[in-house]
């Protein structure tokens, strides 16, 4: 049973045609979108495939080792030239890669403006497992 990370980006992937950003949605459209996220988690829980899901705040810092005896370097993030921003993720444990893709496609179908699917791009990455079994 492989685990997969389904990564949601704010930016970075190709934009779907006709995409309307969230600040153009009505409150009802937003609520429908949030409900879809909750339903997705419930669907994964009922299927026994849910491992975790988190959303990330858009604020944050870049931190680096500051050298012997010195405090860490802390910069306000993100770097201006960084186009990519991670919004959150699902972690699932599923039978196959095909099922992981199916789940990602389901997530991508979340309703947006006018209740139409937002066709969001999601990144699906296998999570490394522990030591291998029998050689």
């Amino acid at each position: 049973m492989p685990k997969y990370l389904i990564l949601k980006h704010y930016q970075g992937g190709p934009e779907a045609p006709g995409f309307a950003p969230m600040n153009e949605w009505t409150p009802e459209e937003m609520e429908a979108h949030f409900q879809y996220q909750r339903d997705t988690i419930k669907m994964l829980q009922d299927a026994g495939e849910f491992v975790g899901a988190e959303g990330l705040a858009q604020t944050g810092n870049w931190v680096q080792y500051g050298g012997e005896g010195k405090p860490p370097h802390v910069l306000d993030g993100p770097f201006p030239e960084t186009k990519e921003l991670i919004a959150g993720w699902f972690v699932i444990d599923v039978e196959s890669e095909a099922r992981a893709h199916e789940v990602a496609a389901y997530v991508s179908k979340a309703p947006g403006k006018g209740g139409e699917p937002i066709f969001e791009w999601l990144e699906v990455r296998p999570i490394m497992s522990g030591p291998p079994p029998v050689e």
């Binding site: 049973m1 829980q45 026994g48 495939e49 849910f50 491992v51 522990g130």
Partner: peptide, 15 residues
């Protein structure tokens, strides 16, 4: 043993 949430295993057993 499978590094999964207990609820996930419980759900699999119930299914």
């Amino acid at each position: 043993a499978y590094l999964l949430p207990e609820a996930t295993i419980a759900q699999r057993i119930s299914r």
